[in-house]
Design a protein around this nucleic acid. Structure first.
Lengths: 246, 246
DNA sequence: CCTCCAAAAAATGTGCACATTTGCTTCGTG
DNA sequence: CACGAAGCAAATGTGCACATTTTTTGGAGG
């Protein structure tokens, strides 16, 4: 009885990669949605309880997120949602801006009608979302525009880096972005496409640069929007109601 | 008695982050040096034996390297040194080329005498290494030149990305780069500095582009240079001769 | 001699029982 | 009442014992 195993209905050494992935996705999603506020502590025991999995499962996911720099891991002190400084945010936006300058430079050699058509169609989607006031869709499509640009190069390394920057900025936006007025102006995206259509690289770069500087200028610290750590269970509420305490 | 602990002299739950780091560094170093050939299987038990640490220690390091895409992890089948295709290599070089175009565009606004002086001094080092025929130093300094460029922007995200690309290409070089003739020609680096000195962005970008295309054109598959997996113990030979078998 | 299949051997994956460390509360003293 | 030290509760880190999966081995049959 010392080594009692096989608690309740669960089997032991059974490999279940899908379960890892589910927990990873759940936490990442909460992070990207901005449900997990900056500075919140993510302790292993409560998370294991909430998701109904073993603590090492949680531990592995947490360390993975730490390796991706999505969580701040401190030895012997666990995981916290990082609290980016304004400089950190500027750094991400600037990186995006610099990268896109390079992308556009290269794109000038590859641009064809098919690409222009694709981007034009995307602009229509963006405008539709803006017109109907769908903020969530606008944010998503706004990011997708830049992804389309880099994807046109067909370079996996660059696409990965940009996606990483984008997801990182989307988290930061929840702290630093003014919730009132919105995302990338569609017109500025349109101006980039116009310049590409005219095969005018330097204009495309200039427009892109102005576009980013415009977005960056709107950033500001939103102190009151940090109500600190709320209950973890409510954040992951509808995921897996295994057992609750109290 | 069922739970016997504290085997031989070793302490159990003792935290020892330095040991993790040492193993990580050792394997990463072997990878960067090209001592671990593409396709080699990295099994946990032999590595644990070689480094004299527990298997989970090795396991953690292996998974971390997998998350960084330095090793190829296959569920239930362990870790292998990735076998990059020629397209993979081209992708890394192209990403570097595109990124540097963006970096130079931005750098044009920031370039000052101090930077020019720094780069000029670096060029002198490169020339010295080339003159004295020190190939190892030449490779290292050649990479450092590009790091200096991106570091001048003072953007941590961009610096990290470039460093990542550089370390990745240095691994690939061991498979695809002609060992006979060498690295970035110093003159091409000099031409970039000249263009920067003249504040001529488009020339700097053009030179940089040519520079990379030149390097990329020299890539070719070196089939015979893949003698497959040799003994792991010899690769990590002088690290930690704990115990040997056979 | 080759192919296919079963059984054994080896390697990977996971829960668990601790050891260790951290954080917090409480109590005593100036 | 402030301050610090000791003790206690909770969280993190690690080795180990299996369960599961993959790979190798060894024959039997064509």
């Amino acid at each position: 009885m010392a080594t009692q195993r096989g608690r309740n209905g669960k089997r032991n050494g059974k490999a279940n990669p899908a379960e890892d992935e589910a927990v990873y996705e759940a936490i990442l999603h909460a992070l990207l949605e901005g449900k997990l506020k900056a500075g919140v502590k993510l302790a292993e025991p409560p998370l294991a309880d909430i998701f109904g999995v073993s603590r090492e499962r949680i531990r592995k996911v947490l360390h993975r997120l730490g390796a991706e720099r999505r969580l701040e891991m401190i030895p012997n002190r666990g995981a916290r949602v990082p609290r980016p400084t304004l400089d950190d945010v500027r750094s991400v936006y600037e990186a995006h801006r610099v990268l896109e300058a390079g992308v556009l430079t290269q794109l000038a050699r590859l641009v064809d009608d098919a690409l222009i058509d694709k981007l034009t169609a995307h602009l229509a989607e963006e405008r539709a979302a803006a017109t109907r006031g769908d903020r969530a869709a606008s944010v998503r499509l706004s990011g997708a525009f830049h992804v389309h640009l880099v994807e046109a190069l067909g370079n996996a390394e660059l696409t990965r880096f940009l996606s990483d920057l984008l997801s990182r900025s989307s988290v930061m936006v929840s702290v630093y972005e003014p919730a009132t007025d919105s995302i990338c102006a569609v017109d500025e995206h349109g101006a980039i496409v116009d310049a590409l259509r005219a095969r005018d690289v330097s204009r495309a770069i200039a427009v892109s640069r102005e576009h980013f500087l415009h977005v960056e200028s709107r950033l500001h610290l939103d102190d009151d929007a940090v109500p600190a750590n709320e209950d973890l269970a409510s954040v992951f509420g509808a995921i897996k109601p295994k057992r609750r305490k109290r």
